[in-house]
């Protein structure tokens, strides 16, 4: 197995470089890309990447594998390697801290901008707020986001305007709260999103949909927000 690995340590390297490595793996089998990284790291501990749950729910190990964004822990090597070669790079579009570790500040800032928490100023009942199964169903495909940033960092509009365009991950969560029958801040939420950039920078390229390791569909959510904005304008 030949691996071309993006290396960069700001204290040691003037510029990023690609390191060519070779690893003997008898029959790639079930090996995930994260397993591969772990084996490389056992040999060279200086390789830096984030990881935690190793089962695709914590969202730590989003990386770019042979040009595709995804989670290292749930992507089988056999699925991404081409002719025994795998190129591993950090998620594109964000500043690199070291090796595969990117600075997620801008990504998190866009998430925070959409006020990602339930707003309802009515005093809550002594028990839970009721919600019909049908209303709850509307949150499926939205709340499962793991904030791995695979979508936003595959989005040309986000690369271009990361400070003004909320990006697919943030907008998916914006819609998660717009769609929640318990949230009463719809008007304020939409007002915050109606400028030319926050939502409308989305050009429907749909890279986000193919990048999402959880099979979510930010483009559809963005479409729904647009519809709400348009209806609100009428």
């Amino acid at each position: 197995m030949r691996i071309s690995l993006y290396r960069y340590d700001p204290d040691a390297d003037a510029a990023p470089r690609m390191e060519n490595l070779e690893l003997d793996i008898p029959g790639v089998g079930d090996l995930m890309v994260l397993d591969l990284l772990e084996r490389l790291k056992a040999i060279d501990p200086s390789i830096a990447y984030r990881r935690s749950c190793r089962e695709g729910v914590c969202g730590s190990d989003g990386v770019n594998m042979n040009g595709r964004n995804g989670l290292a822990c749930t992507t089988p090597v056999s699925e991404v390697a081409r002719r025994g070669k795998l190129t591993l790079r950090p998620l594109p579009g964000l500043p690199v801290i070291r090796d595969l570790v990117v600075d997620m500040t801008q990504f998190y800032r866009q998430y925070e901008k959409i006020k990602p928490f339930l707003q309802n100023e009515d005093p809550p009942p002594a028990r839970e707020r009721l919600q019909t199964p049908e209303d709850r169903e509307k949150l499926n495909g939205l709340y499962e986001c793991i904030l791995c940033a695979c979508c936003s960092t595959s989005c040309p509009s986000f690369w271009w305007n990361p400070e003004k365009f909320v990006g697919p991950a943030g907008l998916l969560q914006a819609y998660r709260f717009l769609a929640d029958s318990r949230d009463t801040a719809t008007e304020e939420r939409l007002a915050e999103l109606e400028d030319p950039f926050s939502v409308f920078r989305c050009r429907g390229i749909m890279n986000c949909v193919s990048a999402c390791p959880k099979g979510l569909n930010p483009t559809r959510a963005i479409g729904k927000i647009r519809t709400m904005l348009v209806e609100r304008g009428i």
Binding site: F117, L118, E128, L130, T132, P133, D135, R136, F177, R182
Partner: peptide, 19 residues
């Protein structure tokens, strides 16, 4: 648990709308 629900936790619901 009710506090979590009030904070927005998307619990699955029964037909009567409870958790």
């Amino acid at each position: 648990v009710y506090e979590l629900e009030h904070m927005g936790l998307p619990f699955t619901r029964t037909e009567s709308g409870r958790i």
